[in-house]
Amino acid sequence: MIWRFILKRIIWMVPFMFAVSLVAFLLIQAPPGDYLTTYIAKLGESNEVMDQASVDNLRARFGLDKPLYVQYFKWVSNLLVGDFGMSFEWRQPVSELVWQRMGLTMMLSFSTLLFTWAVAFPIGVYSAVRKYSIGDYIATTIGFIGLATPNFLLALVLMYIGVVHFGSDVGGLFSSEYKNAPWSWPKVWNLIQHLWLPVVVLGTSATASLIRIMRANLLDELNRPYVDTARAKGLSEFWLIMKYPVRVALNPFVSTIGWVLPNLVSGAVVTAIVLSLPTAGPLMLQALLSQDMYLAGAFVLLLSSLTVIGMLISDILLVLLDPRVRYE
């Protein structure tokens, strides 16, 4: 039953990803001009001129003179064998550039997700069970501030505090001596020392909104008759709340995985620039600005796959969690 469901969902992903690749390609092509026009304009700024012949030559070499559908077809067929093409700007295979950054991005996203849940879950439950208590008001206030503060501002403030009051080295994910060093235990420790800041910065607003979601959901569930039934059985207050209403209120919590994943990757661009994190965000921004189409395309595609995979994971978890979903 459940395997059939997962298989069905995976099969559905194939046509969906095709559609995504088409949209991604069209989006990248949407601004007027191509990489070469941007490149020539850039050269023009430094008073270098390129003659028409070499422009045409370059255009033919990059395949930019072909009609759109030919370009798309070539791109997609190369994708199928794992070739993401060359980055115009970096003159490197796109896959090398992307994987290097994606690894760290994924790790950062995952840590942030864990942080978000670990903080939001207990506070959300507490806020609902002790509605209108002092603790609830404090959590609510902090939550709203967290929601309303822009990430980059929070990053700047925390960096300032970190540097001025603790004299710690903030910014980036590694200290300079480890930046290009091979992986070792001291390097991992160095990473952990640097990780907390971006995790807190990136996780705050998601934590705040999850607290609100958990609180609202649980408040709806706490007055259901099945909670009374459990209480009338003689179950202790803590266990009955954990086993019944929290379990039901967890559904929307799980659904958030779907949007948290891509959000962390793309939404963190500004923060990543402020904190100079070697993650995917800044590179993608650069690629889009310079119309480096294969690099940008790869990122858009990866983000979409992350969304789709995130949705798949949350759907599978939902099915495991709620039998009613299973039977529909």
Binding site: P225, T229, Y244, R247, V248, P323, R324
Partner: peptide, 9 residues
């Protein structure tokens, strides 16, 4: 219906 938990057997 609502007096029994919807997600437990």
């Amino acid at each position: 219906m609502s007096s029994l938990s919807p997600v437990h057997t």
